[in-house]
Amino acid sequence: MEQNNHYNKRLKAFASDLRSTSTKAEVRLWCELLSKGKTGYSFLRQRPIGPYIADFMCKELKLVIEVDGYSHNFKTEEDLERDTVLAALGFTTLRFTDEEVMRDLPNVERSIIAWIACLQR
């Protein structure tokens, strides 16, 4: 039986809180692109994976999408470590800035769709 993609029950309450306090960029990406299978795949919001909570996660694609706000400008090492741990768990992480999502959503969408298309080849 599958391990439920390394779901961490201890982070469940925190993940729930994060869903209710999402950033504008996270809400926009969710509503306009990732909800209701608009990409052809099901994504979950604020999903615990190992020791982290992914902004968005697709189990089927083993894909994590992160929307990084201003504070991530100072967390390069932490983000690299996080991506390395998630990769060891079998996930690919795509990162976008809040600004990219808010000002250039069509390009963010193209990037995600192109990644999915490469995976399907």
Rank of each mutant, 00 (worst) to 15 (best):
C31H: 09
S35Q: 07
E78G: 08
Y70P: 07
R121F: 10
N8F: 13
T23Q: 07
D55L: 02
K62C: 04
G37V: 00
R103I: 14
V101Q: 14
A87S: 07
L44C: 03
I49L: 00
D83Y: 13
T97V: 07
V85H: 08
R121V: 08
L89N: 03
Y41N: 00
L34S: 00
E81G: 11
S22L: 14
Y7P: 08
E60Q: 07
V67I: 12
R45L: 02
N8A: 12
S22F: 06
W115C: 14
K38G: 00
T39N: 03
D83T: 14
G40L: 02
T76H: 15
K62Y: 04
N4T: 15
L34E: 03
Y7I: 09
L61W: 02
L105E: 06
E26N: 06
S22K: 09
F43V: 01
T92H: 09
R28P: 04
L119Q: 08
V85Q: 13
R121K: 10
S35T: 09
S20I: 10
G69L: 11
V108K: 12
N107C: 12
G40E: 02
S20M: 06
C31A: 15
V64L: 05
M102D: 06
I65R: 01
V85W: 07
K38L: 05
D17I: 06
G37S: 01
K38Q: 04
Y41I: 02
S35P: 04
K12F: 15
D104L: 06
E99Q: 10
P51E: 00
L89I: 05
Q46T: 00
L105Q: 12
I112T: 13
Q3R: 05
V85F: 10
V108E: 08
L80A: 10
D68K: 08
E81I: 08
M57C: 05
A25F: 05
F56V: 00
Q46P: 00
A117N: 14
R47C: 01
T23H: 12
W115P: 06
S71G: 15
S16T: 11
Q46C: 01
G50L: 00
E109D: 13
P51N: 01
T23K: 07
T21E: 14
T92D: 09
S22C: 13
A15H: 11
C118W: 15
D83S: 11
T23G: 09
H72Q: 15
D68R: 09
A54Q: 01
